[in-house]
Nucleic acid binder design. Sequence first.
DNA 1: CCGAAAAGCGACGTTTTCTGTCGTGCAGAT
DNA 2: ATCTGCACGACAGAAAACGTCGCTTTTCGG
Lengths: 339, 339
Amino acid sequence: MRKAGDTIMRSLAMLRVIPVQPRSKTTREIGEELLAVDPDYEVDIRSIQRSLEKLSAIFPIGSERDGRANRWFWTQKDAITQIPSMSRETAFALKLAGEYLKPIMPPSTLGLLAGHLRAADEMLKGESKLGAWTRKARIVERGLATIPPSVRQDVIEEVYRALLDDQRIEVTCSAPGKRATRRVLNPLGVVFRGGVIHLVATEDGEEGDDEVQHFMLHRMSNPTLLAEPVQRPRGFSLSRHIKETDEFSSDPGTVKLRLRALFQPEAFGQLGDGKLASDHRATTRRDGRTLVEATVADSAELRTWLMGFGAMVEVVSPKRLRNEFVEHAEALHAAYVKK
Amino acid sequence: MRKAGDTIMRSLAMLRVIPVQPRSKTTREIGEELLAVDPDYEVDIRSIQRSLEKLSAIFPIGSERDGRANRWFWTQKDAITQIPSMSRETAFALKLAGEYLKPIMPPSTLGLLAGHLRAADEMLKGESKLGAWTRKARIVERGLATIPPSVRQDVIEEVYRALLDDQRIEVTCSAPGKRATRRVLNPLGVVFRGGVIHLVATEDGEEGDDEVQHFMLHRMSNPTLLAEPVQRPRGFSLSRHIKETDEFSSDPGTVKLRLRALFQPEAFGQLGDGKLASDHRATTRRDGRTLVEATVADSAELRTWLMGFGAMVEVVSPKRLRNEFVEHAEALHAAYVKK
DNA sequence: CCGAAAAGCGACGTTTTCTGTCGTGCAGAT
DNA sequence: ATCTGCACGACAGAAAACGTCGCTTTTCGG
């Protein structure tokens, strides 16, 4: 009747089916989901009751009476045990990832990973002293660290959930100048740009307007997930939308150019041994400068990157780009040196 | 004798004690570690044998004969099950983190997190269609994407291990011009800088030289972990070392300055609602430009960042910084416009 | 207000599994 | 050759798990 080792597997499966704190499932639901995972887990519901009771004695699992049914849930949100346990190297990499993400990823989103980072801490705790890993690894930032606007945790989670479930969401949107308004949105996607999260959505107005708008998450509050399905404009595509929107001008588009630029030694050193493209070529000239050649996307980022080096980099070609830099030099000269 | 629910807990603990593929543990070792985790797991070693046998029938656990002892290990490297299972929102955040990290974190290190990303995939798989999350979230890069040099996976893992265990490591170092040499290093720390990993270490020469050097991981191969402890220079500190080294000139040092700069609307828009510092202030003037004031670190990154905006940002004060920008404008003018 | 339906829970007897113990066999170590 | 540490088969008692029955509680509908 019972298969070998079935009990342990089923208990494990149960642990995975039980949701965390804010959500919960009834005994029956757990039984059904268990069955859906693997039909071999077919047992009397009474057994499931007993297992749940036992597990809740061992693990941080709680139950609550909801009418005539019992609802079960994990009480500790961030307690994660992983099997097989992660290796120390992976834990190290995970902590590093956290450091990498801290300055660029919205804290609210990063917060969802807190459990994993904590688990890595736990794994590394045994090693030498606590926090010792900090003394052994450091990330030297390339860009300037800015403080991204903070997004409320509940907004983040509800928006993600709305996206995953393709459900509408109702939120209060505020804007610097205007009065806060309550809106019903059809979430289509999220775009991350320098720590700011934009929700791409259509608003549910009286008219069936398909106008795609952007809403910044840090200006939202009081999210309520609605049980209505998202109305998606016909043929909408997030990547296409990003390309067509000036605001996200990034345009990692198809237009490429053959860059040739002269780098002073210090500037070239900053490249490390990194490359701009697969056909990247670097040749050091007699005057000490290095000619870098690569086929790269013709983007605003490229210009920003090149300008960031200041006079340490001179764009040689394509002529079009060089002309831009000539104009840029003149504009700067006009602004700072006057005439 | 047997405590309630003991069996499941012990099985779970065993699963966590067993290492993954390349490494392995004997039956006795597992028993001892189990005991170290919790003295309540005291059982006859025979029982451990039996449990292992049973578990290996259910989980991807294998055994190998090593002399007269059996050695156990997980056969599937990246198969991760987590309890409680991560929420869909967390999985979403994890995938996003992966996207964030892809362009900036060395692939070899990111590779260590493959299992976690896979687990997130698995969790998201049920949602709508496979890979559907990609169509719902996008990260718009701020900086220019460069291709970091690739580091061999074995080098990464061994170096991390050496750091965690404070053990020496022997590697083959190659450099563009020179012949490859075999070196014994005392790893002191790693520094990540724009996708390049530097190992900070002293070399184990004949003389007890305490000269701290840098070795780039992508130029290493054939790592061998040595069973000798690291010889650490008296009073070495990684943060101090980074500060004192010009190569990592970042210097998030203590020197601050009160920046005041005028942003054109487009430039100011790029800030989103982000801030430069906690005392960040922005006031829009009549001519449309916005005056941004903030107390920030006096760093090279600040200059790069400001220069990246080109003529769209004008530094007003401090005077010292403005003078630098005047010189910068003149240098650019001289380089591009000639005289 | 009452009864049916649904869920929880205690109890019981049976089946299955777990566990300690002993004995045997094998492979290095002495 | 003998000893020692480990794996592994076997066995019997103990404990746990299971299905089942029956009772109680709660909700919901008439």
